[in-house]
């Protein structure tokens, strides 16, 4: 797909699905159906090239976190294929997955619950190094750990090495999580809402750190976020997800300047603006409906009940991602209204 050799595809995902079966309990006993599933990720295709930051943006429940966990095999995919640097890792056993674990890591949303409370920063960072036999003695490990702490800005490192997570602030914890994720020098990192739990004034520090790591270490990042504004700041490309599907995928800033898919346009219109003079943004949105339920997905285009451009075909046929103007859009009507509508 990529035309040159130096644009190596790190990750290639095709037809990826994850369905969580629901046990038929009290709440569903009225439904009278068998095999009710939450279709968290429902047929997703994309690829990530070496050294890029790909953003996955969507509302809560759209499956973006599930997608991130699937990619690093923290969830077992229901269908589809994940190729990591050409190797099929979709169903590898734990043992055979181990060499790949070194190359792909994840940073979780909540730095308060994703770090072990009884370990010091040094122990947290040395453990993966020892498991993967990168260092053989503890001394070597500590040297490496302080280098990592320096990389993520936790200096002076000798102070931070002996700290427990509960002695750190939220931002410092998230830096430690990132240090742990890059300890094994991975090629690829999933960052799942890395700043949404942090104070406003320190978010920028974490975002800038991830960008610097990308630049300096050639890291490839999948950034999961609900915030279009930070996705635009961080990402080379952005994928917009809606109820388990990617509906639009393309260059980050362009998608925001000129969104094609009606859903992306809705998200942009709903974003509060920092423009106190023109307080005109509270105008009514084109739709008052809330997002579809991933248990009971609408027929055809899953966005059609909320879409102002909805036509007959949208109610019956599911649109595929098609290339329009250098990006991919899954919308039947896109060619009809794009030229007329402009912005």
């Amino acid at each position: 797909m990529s035309d040159t050799d130096h644009e190596e595809v790190i990750l290639q995902v095709s037809g990826l699905k994850k369905l969580f079966p629901l046990r038929k309990g009290l709440a569903l006993s009225g439904a009278g159906e068998k095999n009710v599933c939450v279709r968290a990720v429902d047929g997703v295709d994309f690829q990530i090239t070496d050294g890029e930051i790909l953003g996955v943006v969507g509302e809560s429940g759209c499956g973006k976190t599930t997608l991130g966990k699937l990619l690093v095999r923290l969830h077992e995919p229901s269908e589809g294929q994940i190729l990591f640097r050409g190797n099929d890792i979709t169903h590898l056993s734990k043992r055979r997955m181990k060499p790949f674990r070194r190359q792909m890591q994840i940073v979780f949303q909540d730095p308060f619950s994703s770090l072990p409370v009884r370990m010091t920063a040094s122990e947290i960072l040395v453990e993966p190094l020892r498991i993967h036999k990168i260092v053989s003695t503890n001394e070597e490990g500590v040297v490496e750990a302080s280098r990592l702490l320096e990389d993520v800005g936790l200096v002076p490192t000798e102070v931070f090495l002996s700290k427990h997570p509960n002695q750190l602030s939220g931002g410092q914890r998230q830096r430690l999580s990132i240090a742990r994720a890059i300890a094994l020098k991975p090629k690829f990192i999933v960052a799942d809402e890395p700043v949404s739990m942090l104070d406003l004034s320190i978010r920028a520090g974490i975002l800038n750190l991830i960008r610097d790591l990308k630049r300096e270490h050639g890291l490839t990042v999948l950034l999961i976020t609900h915030d279009l504004a930070s996705a635009q700041y961080m990402c080379d490309r952005i994928a917009i997800m809606y109820v388990g599907n990617i509906v639009e995928l393309g260059p980050g800033k362009e998608i925001l300047r000129k969104p094609f898919h009606p859903y992306t346009r809705l998200l942009k219109a709903a974003l509060p603006r920092l423009d106190p003079v023109g307080k005109h943004h509270l105008d009514k949105l084109p739709t008052e409906k809330e997002a579809a339920n991933p248990i009971d997905i609408p027929s055809g285009c899953r966005f059609h009940p909320r879409c102002i451009y909805c036509r007959e075909v949208c109610k019956t046929d599911e649109p595929e991602l098609r290339t329009v103007d250098g990006r991919q859009v899954a919308c039947h009507a896109v060619n009809d209204w794009l030229p007329i509508d402009g912005q």
């Binding site: 406003l200 320190i202 520090g205 925001l256 603006r273």
Partner: peptide
């Protein structure tokens, strides 16, 4: 200066 907005897309963020 510490959070991104879509009104100033080219703004470089500076954490406090």
């Amino acid at each position: 200066n510490s959070f991104p907005t879509i009104d100033q897309m080219d703004k470089e963020l500076e954490p406090i």
